[in-house]
Design a protein around this nucleic acid. Structure first.
Lengths: 197, 197
DNA sequence: GATAATCGATACGTTGCGTATCGTCAACAG
DNA sequence: CTGTTGACGATACGCAACGTATCGATTATC
């Protein structure tokens, strides 16, 4: 004890087996009867896990959905790096579309945002997490385009990235009519050239 | 009874006094302690109205929020018609911003979308309503711009309008960091010219 | 083989939703 | 003036889900 006290980092995450059972049960429910059927009690039952166990490792339903969202999305969106900015963006949007429409990640996101409206603490966490999630790859793509002079360097980064990505989430989470693959392409083209004649 | 039976249209809306009391109470709650405090029972208490009365006229909390959203937004967004497309768009976005950030309309919208995640029936209604709401004025502005040749006529209408409006809603409802007035201007400019060098 | 962490089961209190019942009150028509 | 109708308030339910507490059993780890 010659050193300062070490507050050892306890593993504040669920044991893998438990986490796997819980997230899988949540995914099955979400995929089956949709978001309304995703309740803590249903998850517990379907996972063959006690409700108390869930509350030991997750603070709320939003936390579970966020965890699930991450588990699905992790390492599924990679940088296309085709060498062409437009192609990169199109590939990026399409892989995002595939993930969000082809899996339950989209519904997890929708449920997540619904949940945090009544939970200020998780709200900032989810928003921060979501923002980070969206930026990891997009940032790299935009970085290259700015460095190579493909796109204007005088614009605010956020403005650019929102312009690219906002319609995607808007269609998915608000309009509930996800973009099609063709619309992804068309969207990228018009973002580049603008709508003016 | 020589005529066909007439199924007279009963007035399926609440009497004005009741509606006013309920929506006002909902607004006060939303403005005060935020969305989590907006419960049917709290609305009833604050409005000095019995819960049964509320259920007589509204099918769910989402219906109340939708009604409130309309009541606030109705006739508050007018067509600027300045003669200049960019100016029209900027004025439009700013008045929308003022409405959504300066009143509780934004929070009503957020609560509305959270609510309908667990209510498939209201979900389509809210989405349709919301889509209509957003288009009334924007459509006119875009119409004029296409007619006058200010913007390209070869683009999909939805693509154009989503590009304009999606970042606004994305920032407001998902990122929970509404655009600033300056960002509205900058956004319109870049939508027109694109981000390419 | 002891200690600690994790777990399942169960019970509990609470909130909020949505329904049912019933007596009251006001408007309005005959 | 009286009867009918429509809206209302009060109250009581039943129910689902949340989140907490307790406690004995199980597993892992040293």
């Amino acid at each position: 004890m010659s050193e300062k006290l070490r507050f050892e980092e306890k593993p504040r995450v669920a044991p893998v087996a438990t986490r796997r059972k819980v997230l899988e049960a949540a995914a099955v429910l979400l995929d089956g009867d949709g978001y309304p059927s995703v309740t803590i009690e249903a998850i517990a039952t379907n996972a063959g896990v006690a409700k108390t166990t869930i509350y030991r490792w997750w603070s709320s339903k939003a936390a579970i959905l966020l965890d699930l969202f991450d588990a699905i999305g992790d390492e599924r969106i990679s940088d296309p790096a085709t060498g062409d900015f437009a192609e990169d963006l199109k590939a990026y949007l399409k892989s995002l579309l595939e993930l969000m429409s082809g899996t339950i990640a989209g519904e997890a996101a929708a449920g997540m945002f619904a949940e945090v409206q009544s939970d200020p603490v998780m709200k900032v966490e989810v928003c921060a997490h979501f923002s980070e999630f969206r930026q990891i790859v997009l940032n790299q793509i935009v970085d290259r385009a700015i460095a190579s002079g493909t796109i204007r360097g005088d614009l605010d980064r956020r403005l650019i990235e929102d312009l690219i990505i906002a319609p995607f989430w808007y269609r998915l989470l608000i309009a509930h009519e996800p973009m099609s693959l063709e619309e992804c392409d068309a969207h990228v083209d018009v973002v580049l050239t603008g709508i003016a004649s």
